[in-house]
Design a protein around this nucleic acid. Structure first.
Lengths: 134, 134
DNA sequence: CTGCTTGCAAAGGCTTTGCAGAACA
DNA sequence: TGTTCTGCAAAGCCTTTGCAAGCAG
């Protein structure tokens, strides 16, 4: 995704494309991936830009709110962010901390449950935790 | 579950039934439920016993390791513990923080995916996040 | 000029840890 | 007597917040 395209994406979600947000966005949307805040921070710095930790967190939360990325509750300690928002699910390797997509054609629900009274679905998250064979 | 039964359960998993562990266990296994560490602490105190926060955490982690309870990654802030370990899944109400079981007959996978090379499954966690209507 | 954004440092909340004393076998 | 367990306080970590300075329209 080039800068022009990214800028359009942000604007289309009502996010003003400041230079910091562009930096964070560039890394997120470079390819589909699962990252935590600190990885973003590191990658931005490696790319030679200066963005503060607070701004990374602010930006990630903003992107989540505007539906640009998805939060993943897979790691008990850190929040992960998924740079694609379409429905798909994850393996989480508890030994390595790695998050991987489950190929969409390999996962299907036979039945979807009725939601509790008075609620609407926000997301469906399937996490298969795996461990390395020793 | 009475004390004798609980003691047997702990011993069967190689956990020495100290009085603190019995207190924590009594609350957990009173009924199937989803609790965080602080709720356990409160309930123990309400019941008139003194168990420290550190011991509650130690005990919960020990119980997880020995397969007595399950960790639930549903809340981004707090760890929840499920006092039943058989396969079942959860609704998480993001407005109230409430965790509810999905009735097992209402949730079924049509296909289960092939695991990544060299790994074994540890658990499958399905969380349907819901929000209160308007 | 006004509102939004950023960055720093500090605060906040959950969980773990170090260590000394207590309990237990 | 030696190991295990507990409790307190402190530390650690991730994330949020308060606030002053910067930037954009």
């Amino acid at each position: 995704m080039d800068d022009r395209e990214l800028e359009g994406l942000l604007r289309s979600k009502g996010v003003s494309p400041t230079s910091q947000r562009m930096q964070v966005g560039k890394i997120l949307f470079e390819r589909p991936q699962h990252v935590c805040a600190e990885e973003i921070l590191n990658k931005v710095h490696e790319a030679g830009y200066r963005v503060s930790k607070a701004t990374v967190y602010n930006t990630l939360n903003l992107f989540v709110t505007r539906g640009l990325i998805r939060e993943l509750n897979v790691d008990p300690v850190r929040m992960f962010y998924d740079s694609t928002t379409h429905a798909h699910h994850h393996f989480y390797n508890v030994d390595t901390g790695e998050v991987m997509d489950i190929p969409p054609d390999q996962m299907n629900f036979a039945i979807m449950p009725k939601l509790p009274e008075g609620t609407v679905a926000e997301s469906v998250e399937v996490t298969i935790k795996v461990r390395n064979k020793h």
